[in-house]
Design a binder for these strands. Structure first.
Lengths: 341, 341
DNA sequence: CTGAAAGCGCTTACAG
DNA sequence: CTGAAAGCGCTTACAG
């Protein structure tokens, strides 16, 4: 019998050494074989894999992180989970990262630069293998933290031409301009833009709308309705009533997000205001329920699941030290015309 | 100058040893002082804390996990993020756990027992400090995995009287029974129950409805509409039309979740069917938008943020090895009567 | 209440 | 292509 003192903290775990012993090689060879490092004899690789499978070996992530100074988790920073948009992105990210052996650690910034910095600080101390952040804009501090960490980072939702910046998204301004053009094409002339939250992407949408109305000679600052409060169905209803009370000649309202537009459609029903007869209503993102509204909502379908998948794939390449074909992937969008415009 | 070979892998990180040196004590004393272990001279604790602060010391989670065989993350398993319910729970959990130094690792089971097992297996290999799972019911395998791991575990959303089971939630059946009683009180006699997803909690709600209708002598199996598809606004609309076509004498429909009920209200508008005049509609969970519907939706408000907070608090106690006052916390619910019933 | 020693399970860096 | 040695930064278990 082995005296307890000779194995004081036996954890019962199958270790690299056990696999090495079983396969008749050294631990480091097991390590290399299992990580798929080249420069290992294929025959050995197979022997090692068989032994590992037989013993049910699973690498210890903590030991690996300590030795390599790099953990196996990826941090994803999103602004808010109450916006279904980011839930879809997150799910797609997880679905791509998990099979590759990475854990997803989610942080919610609440659209707040300081919270983002704080999260970044905390997370980077854990030495994540990769980083996924929402949008291109952030504080100088946040930007510096990311750069100094040396952790590979991909930006979600927007596209950036800046050198050294990896991004997967689409042009928020172009999408918004396209929707505005659709409304103009329907003969609308007094097209209001209504937005909440006022984060960077919301303002890019406003810019797209401005650009199109300006080009048509129809821009008017009083058509711009910006509210910094969080986006919600209830807020959309309030904004809609407010806009049409203040400016009865408005013949279309373009909301920066579908929840607002859904609230507007409900308010219109309540007020007995015909949509699109009296006023057209358009949204953005094609959230769940928009196709069920009365009338069904015209909106912009955005490729959030695809963004999550593509960004995860790009990050995997970067984490593997591979070259990335294009650092800036534009996944586009689609104006979905329904009965509300 | 120190030859590079003497510090081949200097990470630049401030370590326990640095703090120990600065405070003039041994590393293990720093470790104990910083973790707030008692049996350290209060004067030393202060000296150590000062040194740590001065040097900007942050413990390395990987090293800590490797040495202690316990990581600093907590795994939370939820069925689905597209149900806003769980987003609220998750946010509350994170908000409570982060200040205590724990990272939240979220896993999505998609209401699938096998996915839950798989996630549990993966996560438990990482030796989480704690575990939060949704609901009491799960496969024997999953239950065994949790038990064998020895990781403290709190169950969310339901309450269980079983010995050794920690839970924070409310009685789904009672809530459902209360809503049914409300409908009966309004003079409704042909009250249908319509549900999707058909997870354990949905079926408990059905049981509460059955119990009340049975007690009133009004139960009828044809009033039960169960669809295993995922819950959604669109599905609610379809179910509503289907129910009223099949059983024109139904005078109320109680949906197991608000998204279904919202879809039903939209369908009623489309069909020109008066709510609550012709048929009453009730939901469950008081999701966002329910108060904005036409008419506003009667529903059950469930304390999901409170559940997240209380469960996190209970888990923190368990992870600290402290006794828990009550292993089963019932946070109740509230029937919110609006104009749809 | 404090400390010296050993060890957690890997990977890095250097040889051969 | 393979390996022996050292080390990653902590905590456990044992003394005193």
């Amino acid at each position: 019998m082995t005296p307890a003192s000779l194995r004081p903290r036996a954890t019962g775990r199958v270790t690299l050494a056990d696999v090495a012993h079983a396969a008749g090689v050294s631990p480091i060879t097991v390590s290399r074989a299992l990580r798929g490092e080249r420069a290992v004899d294929p025959a050995l690789v197979e022997r090692v894999q068989a032994a590992a499978r037989l013993l049910g070996y699973v690498p210890d992530p903590a030991a690996r992180a300590l030795a390599s100074q790099r953990s196996s988790h990826v941090t994803v920073l999103v602004p808010m989970l109450s916006n279904a948009l980011f839930v879809d992105v997150l799910e797609a990210v997880q679905r791509s990262l998990r099979p590759a052996g990475y854990q997803t650690l989610m942080g919610v910034t609440h659209y707040n630069a300081e919270e983002e910095e704080q999260l970044l600080r905390e997370q980077l101390l854990q030495r994540p293998a990769g980083l996924l952040v929402t949008g291109i804009e952030r504080s100088d501090t946040a930007r510096a933290l990311i750069a100094q960490s040396g952790v590979p980072c991909v930006h979600l939702m927007e596209v950036s031409g800046a050198p050294g910046v990896y991004s997967v998204g689409f042009s928020q301004a172009d999408a918004s301009a396209d929707m505005t053009r659709h409304l103009l094409g329907r003969g609308r002339r007094r097209i209001a833009f209504a937005a909440a939250q006022l984060d960077a992407r919301t303002l890019q949408r406003r810019d797209g709308w401005r650009r199109e109305l300006g080009a048509a000679g129809l821009y008017d600052a009083t058509l711009e309705w910006l509210d910094p409060a969080p986006s919600s169905i209830a807020l959309g209803a309030r904004m809609f009533e407010q806009i049409l009370r203040a400016q009865p000649d408005v013949d279309a309202v373009f909301f920066c997000n579908d929840d607002l537009a859904q609230g507007a459609l409900l308010a219109a029903l309540r007020l007995g205001m015909a949509v699109p007869g009296r006023v057209a209503v358009a949204g953005f993102n094609d959230l769940t329920g928009s196709d069920q509204m009365l009338p069904p909502l015209t909106t912009v379908r955005t490729p959030r699941a695809e963004i999550g998948t593509a960004a995860a794939r790009m990050l995997l390449s970067l984490m593997n030290g591979e070259a990335v074909a294009s650092p800036c992937v534009d996944l586009g969008y689609e104006v979905v015309v329904r009965a509300s415009t």
